[in-house]
């Protein structure tokens, strides 16, 4: 693969992954998560995300009513925990269906296009 193709691949991979971060965050927040724990959960699940993208995203999802947040002061360091709302869970379920459909479609397309 030449240098230009490698650059194009990097850009497209980034775009492909960016679209999955919202879905992955909603799924991961089915149990309460604070910023760093969510980052770790996603990375361990094979969806590495940049911190400066994830933290603002959580606030936007909260603003959209898909996540709810609560400060916990029980530990030594106060942490803000995010949990998916009912509405967020519905959106996550819908995104999951879409994901499965896309997976099925792209697999079929790939098989048809592969000699």
């Amino acid at each position: 693969m030449n240098e230009d193709a490698q650059k194009a691949l990097t850009t497209h991979e980034l775009e492909l992954r960016r679209g999955t971060v919202v879905f992955a965050s909603l799924v991961a927040c089915s149990r309460p998560q604070y910023g760093y724990s969510l980052l770790t959960t996603l990375t361990e699940a094979g969806i590495p995300t940049e911190a400066n993208t994830l933290y603002p995203l959580l606030r936007r999802l909260e603003k959209q009513g898909l996540l709810t947040s609560e400060w916990s002061t029980e530990q030594a360091r106060p942490r803000k925990y995010y949990t998916v709302t009912d509405s967020g869970a519905e959106v996550a379920a819908a995104l999951h269906s879409q994901w499965l459909e896309l997976d099925s479609s792209i697999t079929k397309l790939w098989k048809d296009g592969t000699p």
């Binding site: 604070y34 910023g35 760093y36 980052l39 770790t40 911190a51 606030r59 803000k80």
Partner: peptide, 17 residues
């Protein structure tokens, strides 16, 4: 205040880890 507290906690968590 809220964002400052959240970023601070996250930075501290990451450094600690």
């Amino acid at each position: 205040a809220d964002i400052a507290a959240e970023i601070t906690a996250t930075i501290d968590d990451t450094v600690e880890a």
